[in-house]
Amino acid sequence: MFYKRPFDPRNPVVCMDESPKQLIAETRIPISCSPGKPARYDYEYERNGMCNVFLACEPLTGKRMVKITERRTKRDWAYFLEEIEVQHKNADKITLVMDNLNTHIPGSLYETFPPPKAKALWDRFEFVYTPKHGSWLNMAEIELNVLTGQCLKRRMDNIELVKKEVLAWQNYRNNKNSKVNWQFTTDDARIKLSRLYPTIEN
C-alpha cells in the first residue's frame, strides 16, 4: 500500500477530499464561560449560506493544504488540482488519492484551462480512486474529520472567518508534522475488500 512506501519527493503521495461547511450566525450574544460553567449559546441561529472545504494532505510527510471556496464546481476543483501540482512542481508524477465525485474528471480541467494546459496538468497525476463505499481508505477524509473537530465544529458566519481559522489550523498541524497513524494493511484489504480482488477459477 502506498501509505507505507518510503517517501519519494519525485513521486509524492497526496490524498484529497472536500466537504461543505454551513455558515451560521448567532442571533443572540453567547454567554462566555465562567469558573464551573461552560459557555452558553442560544439554540436559535441564522443561516448565512455555505462554503466548500478542499483539503489535500501528504500522509508520508505530515503536511496538508486547505482551500476554502464559495462553491464546489468543476472549476473550483480544477484550480485546487493546479495548486497541488504547483506545490510539487519538482515531482515526476504525483499519486493522488480521491473519491469518484462527479467533478473529478478530465472534463473539469478542459472546461477551466486551454486544452494543452488541461492535458499537461492531468498527465502530472496518477489518480487512485477509492472504491464505492470505501472513502474511509482516503486519509484526507480523516484529516477533514480532524479539521472539523478541532476548528470547524462551531458557528462561523462568514467565509473570511472560516479562511482565517482554517489557515491557523493548517499552519499549526504542519508545524507539528502531524500524521495519521494508518494501521490498515494490504493483508487487511485482501480480507475486507475481497470482492475487489480478482479470483482464479479452475
Rank of each mutant, 00 (worst) to 15 (best):
Y3S: 12
K4A: 15
R5C: 14
N11Y: 10
P12K: 00
V13C: 05
C15H: 00
S19P: 02
L23A: 08
A25N: 12
E26N: 13
I29C: 10
P30N: 08
I31R: 13
G36S: 10
E44R: 11
M50K: 13
C51R: 00
V53K: 00
L55N: 00
A56T: 02
P59A: 08
G62W: 02
K63F: 10
M65D: 12
M65L: 11
I68P: 05
T69C: 12
E70Q: 14
K74V: 01
W77V: 01
W77Q: 04
F80M: 01
E82P: 01
E85N: 08
K89I: 11
A91Y: 01
A91Q: 06
V97Y: 01
N100C: 12
N100T: 07
T103E: 07
H104E: 07
I105C: 05
P106F: 02
G107P: 00
T112I: 01
T112C: 04
F113C: 01
P114S: 11
P114Q: 10
P115Q: 03
R124D: 02
E126Q: 13
E126C: 09
F127E: 03
T130G: 12
G134Y: 04
N138W: 03
I142T: 14
L147F: 08
L147C: 12
T148P: 02
L152K: 05
L152H: 05
R155G: 05
M156H: 04
M156Y: 04
M156L: 12
D157P: 05
I159K: 09
I159P: 02
I159A: 06
E160Q: 15
K164V: 07
E165N: 07
N171P: 05
W182S: 11
W182L: 12
D187F: 01
D188T: 01
A189E: 02
A189I: 03
R190W: 07
R190L: 13
K192C: 13
T199C: 13
